[in-house]
Amino acid sequence: MLRFVVRRLLLLVPILIGLSLLIFIWIRALPGTPADALLGERATPKAVADFRQRYGLDRPLPVQYWAYVKTTASGELGTSVASHRPVTTEIRERFPATIELTGAAMLFAISFGLPLGLLAAKRYGSAVDHASLFVSLIGISVPVFFLAIILKYIFAVKLGWLPSVGRQDVLIDAKHPTNFYVLDGLVTGNWNAAWDALKHLILPAVALGSIPLAIVARITRASTLDVQNEDYVRTARAKGLPPRIVDRRHVLRNALLPVTTIIGLQFGLLLGGAVLTETVFALPGMGSWVKEAIGNHDYPVLQGGILFIAVVFVVVNLIVDITYGLINPRIRVN
């Protein structure tokens, strides 16, 4: 097992090097120069030259790259051009918002997708099965931002049941030690704040969770159908185990293996979809931040933000891989 983990960790090295190179090149390929963005278009040539010298932009590219890697490795991501605040500070505020959103979306997807898939497989060919296939087809066909707009219209504009913008009502006075607003409310004993933050989370989470819901339901159904026909399940049934035990011990445990891998992959989809969901619901998370940064030519934010999201995604996949190795002894062998 240790060898498996070490090998997976070593595979990270080329990915991280490649990622830093890709982002370094990408930033330099963006239209406009940092000097234009920071000093404005009417800066004197002297000011531009001074600026380039100050930030080391006049040095050869390999030297710049090395400097970039060194500062990034020390946890320094620069200062936002738009807000004049350190990128790391903003990440500390915005990343919890995105994690809260993607976490809630995943929770929604699993808690509905998993039972739906299981039920569909158990009643293969029944109305429930057809309904599950239909739900998963709709789930992957409705764009996240369109569903978000529709939900916002029905539940916020028309019915007024749920809030449509932001993470928390501005009138609520709440402390935010962790920046996970629901958790903050619970930790500080401010139930009102926690409940309000939770209400703000429902619509975005449902909109964003629709795709993973569809995919989790599909994969669960397919893998349960596969496992149900395995010899060991027939053996368990033949030796007279009650169906409930067979379902839980033999079918469910094995059927859930592919679902765990899918959940890791879905996390990337959620991080991408968060850009759209956060935009529709005006949530101050990583996604809306990156979107604004593109409009503002805010290079430090783009460079730091995208690198951070990519590293998080890579680490999540690593964790999923390792967990998969833990729960499925079969793949540890080779």
Binding site: P14, I15, G18, L19, L22, G268, L269, L271, G272, G273, V275, L276, V290, I306, I309, A310, F313, V314
Partner: peptide, 10 residues
């Protein structure tokens, strides 16, 4: 792999 490390839409 490096390209896949960045979520698709992003």
């Amino acid at each position: 792999d490096v390209m896949l490390a960045i979520p698709g839409l992003l």
